[in-house]
Amino acid sequence: MFLGHVAWDEYRVKFLASKGFNEKEVAEKIKNNEELKIDEETQEVLENLKDRWFQADNPPADQLLNEEEFLSFLHPEHSRGMLKFMVKEIVRDLDQDGDKKLTLSEFISLPVGTVENQQAQDIDDDWVRERRKEFQEVIDANHDGIVTEEELEEYMDPMNEYNALNEAKQMIAVADENQNHNLELEEILKYSEYFTGSKLMDYARNVHEEF
């Protein structure tokens, strides 16, 4: 192990420990190359994380991430190379016909959750309406009914003005208790956890849910 670097196995141990696995037991099994008995969902998340880990490992690849590489791994949307990788992941997940582009129906096909009652149905309906508006009015820049990887990358770029304005509106809507369209110090402090946990886009939040 090198000072100032994080190895994949070290991160894997901490990740599984955060999911309730015994840290010492996991570390020992990884050290001895023994099979880890983990559920299918956690295994899938680990595989996706490993792909992103190696993507963040800049040449020459040494399977160790320094501080800059680790930040790219944690926040791929802030790294140009990792942003491209994240866009490809999203398109891969939603693209049903394999053309590496997204139609409106593909874009809104990602469910919020299982609909079990009318309230949940209303939430899902609202989600679909918002995603449709987002697709048609913002992401599909040339309005041809198709979103390319380039258009999605432009939309997901944190420097995109729409993202900053949209997030600011959401933050004010949540914290502006007196409805004066301004945030007082008391409101900011009360909702500080919401602000520090804020993400630019719902899907980006899903990408980071393993942390």
Rank of each mutant, 00 (worst) to 15 (best):
Y191T: 07
M156Q: 08
F2R: 14
L36C: 01
R131Y: 13
L74C: 00
F85K: 00
D93T: 11
P158Y: 00
D9W: 13
M171L: 15
G197C: 03
I123P: 09
N142H: 08
F135M: 06
L65H: 06
A17L: 08
W127S: 13
R205S: 08
K169E: 15
R131G: 08
Q96M: 15
D124Q: 10
E161M: 13
F135R: 05
E116M: 14
K31T: 14
D202S: 09
E210W: 12
Y191Q: 06
D39Y: 00
P158V: 00
G20H: 01
F195R: 01
I90V: 12
K50M: 04
K19N: 05
T42S: 07
P111F: 11
V13H: 01
N33Y: 10
M201S: 06
V147H: 06
E89H: 08
A168N: 13
L64D: 09
E149P: 02
F135L: 10
G145Q: 03
V91S: 10
Q118R: 10
E187D: 03
Q55T: 14
H78P: 02
A141M: 14
E106Y: 01
D202Q: 05
E10G: 02
N117F: 09
W8A: 10
R205V: 07
D95V: 12
A175G: 02
D57F: 06
L110Q: 09
D97M: 13
E106S: 02
A168G: 13
E177H: 11
D122M: 13
D202L: 10
T114I: 13
K101F: 11
H143W: 02
T148E: 04
R129E: 12
A7H: 09
L94W: 13
V138K: 05
A175K: 04
A173H: 11
L189K: 04
G197E: 04
L3D: 03
L64C: 06
A175V: 03
I172G: 01
D97R: 12
K37P: 06
N163C: 08
R80L: 13
E193Q: 11
V45H: 00
F15D: 00
M159I: 08
N22T: 05
N166A: 14
R92W: 12
V128A: 02
L152D: 03
K29W: 03
S79W: 05
K24S: 15
E184S: 13
D144Y: 05
D202K: 09
I38V: 01
E167N: 15
L46V: 04
T103C: 02
Y194S: 09
F195G: 03
Q136T: 09
E44I: 07
E137T: 01
N180V: 05
